[in-house]
């Protein structure tokens, strides 16, 4: 009974689409830094870069935690979020973060020679926990059917690919010697990103009225200029061009990384802002 031509009504007493307003900038920042740190850690783990792993742990451990706590209505009780892993992706993710920081830290100490033994096991556990942190936020969003734009299997995929891309680009910008191996990987990941973004928009445009309204917000109205300029332009096209033509030049890699991260952060923000609740019913003919 929902009509497609209903307006966005904000918080008013009118019937229509309502913008999601509960998860905003602090939560988007927490998601961004959580995924970015875990992605950087995983890529650094594979390339055995201790500095990269340390940076990844710090980004997730400090920045994600800070932004999560600043979002929480009752931060002093935040520990309770760990209590329902049987049903909540937030709980599972929190356990993943604790394991990530714990096993990641132990692995790093092992690499530096402070903790002897269990090197392979710690590496495996730290990598698995990083993978959980890279994806769980996507599952937390896609698990719910309330916001049609989010209710898609592409959301966790986008989390995983963005996290991996962010990690690869940060490492590429900070360790230019790794360019020979990382540039092709980065190019491939950016192409995957383009495919995921196109698929997400295509699914939204052919989905429920709420999903179509979200696609309209992203591509035609309120957020279109940000989406095209930052998410698509700076976040995907610019890095592809720079990596393709000048991937081994450190300055180009740094500009490409900055573009990727700007696009990534904007995507995280806009995917929250463009989420809408469907009107419960409509009498429009």
């Amino acid at each position: 009974m929902a009509a497609n031509d209903l307006p966005i009504v904000g918080d008013s007493f009118k019937l229509g689409f309502r913008l999601q307003r509960y998860w905003d900038t602090p939560m988007a920042s927490a998601f961004f830094f959580g995924e970015l740190g875990a992605g950087l850690f995983l890529v650094s783990l594979l390339l055995e870069s201790a500095q990269g792993m340390l940076a990844g742990l710090l980004i997730t451990g400090l920045l994600k935690t800070y932004f999560h706590l600043s979002h929480m209505g009752v931060p002093t009780k935040s520990w309770r979020a760990i209590l329902r892993p049987d049903r909540s992706w937030i709980s599972r993710g929190l356990i993943g973060i604790v394991c990530f920081i714990g096993f990641g830290g132990l692995h790093l100490l092992n690499v530096w020679g402070f903790v002897p033994g269990f090197g392979g096991l710690l590496k495996l556990l730290a990598g698995a926990a990083a993978l959980v942190v890279m994806t769980y936020q996507g599952f937390a969003m896609s698990h719910s059917t309330a916001i049609s734009l989010w209710s898609s299997g592409l959301i966790p995929v986008s989390s995983l690919i963005y996290a991996a891309t962010g990690g690869v680009m940060l490492l590429l910008a900070s360790v230019p010697e790794s360019a020979q191996f990382l540039v092709p990987v980065a190019l491939l990941l950016h192409l995957c990103l383009a495919a995921v973004l196109l698929s997400l928009l295509h699914a939204a445009r052919h989905g429920s009225p709420g999903a179509r309204k979200s696609a309209e917000l992203l591509t035609r109205t309120l957020y279109a200029k940000w989406f095209f300029a930052l998410v698509c332009g700076a976040g995907v096209l610019l890095p592809i061009l720079l990596l393709w033509f000048a991937g081994s030049v450190p300055l180009a890699a740094m500009i490409a990384a900055a573009g990727t991260l700007a696009g990534y952060y904007t995507f995280r923000l806009l995917i929250f802002k463009a989420g809408v609740f469907e009107p419960i019913m409509s009498f429009r003919p």
């Binding site: 309502r18 999601q20 509960y22 998860w23 939560m27 979002h71 929480m72 209505g73 009752v74 931060p75 009780k77 935040s78 309770r80 979020a81 909540s88 937030i90 937390a140 969003m141 698990h143 719910s144 059917t145 309330a146 916001i147 989010w150 989420g275 609740f277 469907e278 419960i280």
Partner: peptide, 20 residues
């Protein structure tokens, strides 16, 4: 027990949750 994370608010299709 509520920690104010808002996950219930984004999960309710009817937008019936309120932040205090």
């Amino acid at each position: 027990k509520c920690i104010g994370c808002g996950s219930c608010a984004v999960a309710c299709p009817y937008d019936q949750r309120s932040e205090m």
